[in-house]
């Protein structure tokens, strides 16, 4: 029943880095440093938002991104837990991969002779098609 040693995260509300990004980075760092382990329970969105005195939507966004990256798992009423493969998944930076993919694609298109505006129009059309 006793609470054991606790892991804390800290955010700076005046840091230029968005709050949700600070949360994502700190939780990933905690996983990498094994301060939190696979299948460890995480606080609820409401608890974390109240403790940090930030909007619950900010915490919700951070948790969504972490879930997308398979660092955490939401298990409904049971709560949120660290993903079993969280440590290896933390090494994968989606934004970095996205930038690399786009750069490669744009390079290929430019080599084929496409102009900047043609590339932008095609990209926008592709995004709109995906949405619909």
């Amino acid at each position: 029943m006793e609470q054991s040693v606790f892991m804390e995260i800290m955010i700076d509300i005046e840091d230029p880095m968005p709050l949700f990004t600070q949360l994502v980075e700190q939780i990933k760092q905690a996983v990498i440093n094994e301060q939190i382990k696979p299948n460890d329970a995480l606080p609820s969105i409401r608890q974390l938002a109240n403790d940090l005195e930030i909007n619950s939507k900010t915490v919700s966004k951070a948790y969504r991104l972490l879930e997308r990256d398979n660092v955490i798992q939401a298990k409904g009423y049971r709560g949120t837990f660290v993903h079993p493969d969280a440590k290896s998944n933390c090494d994968f930076d989606l934004n970095n991969w996205l930038a690399t993919q786009l750069e490669a694609t744009i390079s290929t298109l430019k080599q084929a002779g496409a102009t900047d505006s043609e590339i932008r129009i095609a990209f926008t059309n592709a995004m709109n098609q995906y949405k619909s």
């Binding site: 029943m1 006793e2 609470q3 606790f6 892991m7 804390e8 995260i9 800290m10 955010i11 700076d12 509300i13 005046e14 840091d15 939780i27 905690a30 301060q35 939190i36 329970a41 995480l42 606080p43 609820s44 608890q47 974390l48 403790d51 940090l52 005195e53 930030i54 709560g79």
Partner: peptide, 18 residues
């Protein structure tokens, strides 16, 4: 202060009371 801290553990009822 601009820094804010929070525990990364959930607070569960039976961790505080029998």
């Amino acid at each position: 202060r601009t820094n804010r801290k929070a525990e990364l553990q959930p607070r569960r009822l039976f961790a505080y009371v029998s």
